[in-house]
Structure formats: C-alpha cells, structure tokens
C-alpha cells in the first residue's frame, strides 16, 4: 500500500515559443514515462490539468502547452528558473509492437503526445512518417523537434500557408495509397481521430488513438472520464486505445462530458 499520488516540483530550465499561443516547457529531472502518458500539472491553490509528455531525454522532459483558458494562461506566467509541480505519469501509452513503418497524425494540442512516440520509435529504428494538421503556418508546433528526431514530416494547413492545403486526413489517405504502414497513430481533435480510425478500419491496418476527456484525479477514482458504454476510465484504461477498443467506444466523435458530468456534443 505504498502507492502515493502527490505532486513533485521540477525546475523549469527552458521555455520556447512553439506556435501560436503554444510554448514548450523543459523541466529538469526524469519521469520514467512512456509515449502517450500524461501528467497532472499543478498550480497550487488554482487547479491541476492533464498535459501529455512531449519529449524526454536522460536528464529532463518537456511539456508543450497551448493557451486556451484560465489555467493555461496562468501557467504561461511561469518563468525560466521557477518550479512547476507535476504528478504522474499516468495512463497507458502507445504500443509500438514489432512494427517497422508507422505514420503519426497529430493535430493541435494533441500533437505533443505523438511527437514523443515518434522520438521513441526512431530510437528503436522504426521508419516514421508524420503528418501535422494545423490552421496555418504559425500554428504548427514542434517542427524543429520533429526535424531533429528525423521523421518524414508532412504538414497540412487549412489555408495552405505551409505544405499541403487541406485536411490532415486527406493527406493520410494519399500517403497510405503509396506506402505500406503497419499502424496509424493519432492524437488531435476527436472528429479528425474518428476519421482516421474509420479509414484505418476500412483499409484494414492497425490504429491507435489517444483520447481527451475531462479529467480530475488522473488515477481512476473520480469517474469524470468514464466512457460509454464500457464505463472504463480514459485516465487509466487510456488515453491510448487500440483499434478494436476504439471502434467500440460509442461516444467517440459524438460527445464528451464537462466537469459536472453533463454531455456536450462535438
């Protein structure tokens, strides 16, 4: 019974502008995390929210965070040299199995989680294609990081200001026509992930998706992230789900719940 869930403070050693309203915070210390796992970032007396682990090295790890509301706005006030408290890592990560060639599809603030996956995949000698979907050029995160990792990067923007003009899912369909992938990994807006999942199902290749649901505890007790109809928690059974499980998530692409438990349609 020596399980304990309490936050730990890490020094912020770097803050980098990543894209529109997105920053990468590099923290000194190790987490022992797997790609797809997340932490609860804690601002004392304010709140704590789930954030994916974007990258790890031997001595530090980083979180790439988009400013979207009150919590992330306060988080953006932290400076280099300050401490950031995190708790975790939590959740089940991606499974790379014995795959040789994979493709990742990241969108918005879902991108960091698949970037960490790409990093680990490359370290294992797996060939990685990577699609980032964004509104426009200034909205594409983690390009430098992905170039360093050495993936084949394909950008797609709604306005065509960088790379392909159009949806990431259309780009995926084109690439899958000419390449043989063992698995598609995706994290991003749920409507996009649902399309990716259905596509993978149609062409009969493996797929893993990483879901976002309102989370409070992060360790399977509060019940706010339970899925219909299985009733399992996204924080402990996910956030990554394999194709077979994902296809059975009835609420996928249809609705999520707010902090009260009320259903909100996508």
């Amino acid at each position: 019974m020596n399980k304990i869930e309490q936050p730990k403070a890490f020094e912020i050693i770097n803050i980098a502008d990543e894209a529109d309203d997105m920053k990468t915070f590099t923290l000194k210390g190790t987490l022992n995390a797997l790609p797809g796992q997340f932490v609860m970032v804690w601002l004392p007396e304010i709140d704590a929210k789930p954030i994916s682990i974007a990258c790890t090295t031997n001595n530090n790890f980083s979180l790439s965070i988009k400013k979207v509301g009150p919590f992330t706005t306060k988080l953006f006030k932290l400076k280099k040299g300050n401490k950031m408290s995190v708790q975790g890592p939590y959740g089940k990560g991606y499974d790379l199995k014995k795959y040789k060639k994979i493709i990742c599809v990241g969108g918005g603030c879902g991108t960091p989680s698949v970037v960490f996956l790409a990093q680990v995949a490359k370290e294992k000698g797996i060939d990685v294609d990577f699609i980032i979907g964004a509104r426009s050029k200034s909205d594409i995160p983690l390009q430098k990081c992905l170039n360093n990792i050495g993936v084949n990067l394909y950008t797609s923007t709604d306005d065509g200001s960088c790379g392909y003009k159009g949806f990431a899912t259309t780009r995926l369909e084109e690439l899958a026509n000419t390449n043989k992938y063992d698995c598609i990994y995706t994290c991003g807006p749920e409507i996009m992930m649902k399309k990716v999942l259905d596509f993978a199902n149609n062409i009969n290749i493996d797929c893993q998706i990483s879901m976002e649901r309102y989370m409070s505890c992060g360790f399977g007790i509060c019940g706010k992230c339970c899925l219909d109809d299985s009733g399992v928690c996204v924080c402990t059974h996910g956030p990554v789900f394999d194709k077979k499980t994902a296809l059975n998530i009835n609420e996928l692409g249809k609705y999520h719940r707010d902090s009260t438990g009320k259903k909100i349609a996508f």
Binding site: E5, W42, S216, C217, I221, K224, S259, T260, G261
Partner: peptide
C-alpha cells in the same frame, strides 16, 4: 448542476486518501 472544486480534488498519502470533490454532478434534470 455542480462543477465541484478545482483540482486537485483527490490526493493520497501513506495510509489512505483525502478528497474534496465538492459534489460535482450534472444536477437532477441531466
């Protein structure tokens, strides 16, 4: 409907758990 308290609402220690969820729930109609 009740949003409940901000996070953390649950923490644990050597001998158990401590919570102040604040009765978050969607209310009678939902």
């Amino acid at each position: 409907p009740r949003k409940g308290h901000p996070n953390p609402i649950i923490t644990t220690f050597e001998a158990g758990m401590m919570n102040a969820v604040g009765y978050s729930n969607p209310g009678i109609e939902e």
